[in-house]
Amino acid sequence: MTTSPKPQDAFVRLDNIVKSYGAYVALKGVSLEIAKGQSVALIGPSGSGKSTVLRCINTLEVIDSGAIFVGDLRMGMQATPRGLRQATAVEAARQRESVGMVFQSFNLFPHMTALENVASGPRLVKNVSKPQAQSQAMELLDRVKLGDKANAYPRQLSGGQQQRVAIARALAMQPSVMLFDEPTSALDPETVQEVLNVIREVRDSHMTMLIATHEMEFARHASDMTIFMEAGQIVESGPSAEVLGSPKTERCRRFLAGLTGVAAQPQARPA
């Protein structure tokens, strides 16, 4: 495997990623680059491999071949004097500190309040003192407009509120890149916008981010670049206005046409 230096502008780089589940090949050689501070949307039909790409980047999945770089980190690999080897569980955990992830189903810790959820990373990973972790967490909750829900448990929060807490929890680790896996797909239509607004705000803070989404309007307006995937491969990518406005490939065109056909559905609502 090569460890050739990354191009200056790529902060996140995937080199020819292959990932299979048993005999099923979910990613058939995916390569992409994201510059520092860039916001990239990942679109494509269900089962095309969007989640798999995100999960591979923060090594929730082990890839078959290829290489993933985030900043200086070679994800899932550890450099030793004798070369690269598979990272141990603890080494992989250390790498994940700089990669934030937001899940479709929020996955908040149900036994912790909103504040404790947000403070959990700094507390449990960085051993930040409780008062300091909680005041930082409070700032983040204010930032996602949930300061008044600090002491609520996840079950007492709406889906949109839970997702905003989940975003704050990921931000609390001060990651250098944020991954969003269909962050609004499990939400009631009324609460989609409040979450998108928070994500927009994260983007405006120049966070490097990759977001798998069915919200085409959001991709168009809030993402610098859009990548269209199908059947485990990247079919088309480029500036969002181009990919979403005048797609070059027939498959991307058909996919987008299919979506506008159900314009009344939540994922196609105007942002």
Partner: peptide, 17 residues
């Protein structure tokens, strides 16, 4: 009851299928 999974409303995401 705390451990129950969040009642994710996946329906919206599945509409396109």
């Amino acid at each position: 009851a705390d451990t129950s999974a969040p009642k994710a409303k996946v329906a919206a995401a599945k509409v396109e299928a």
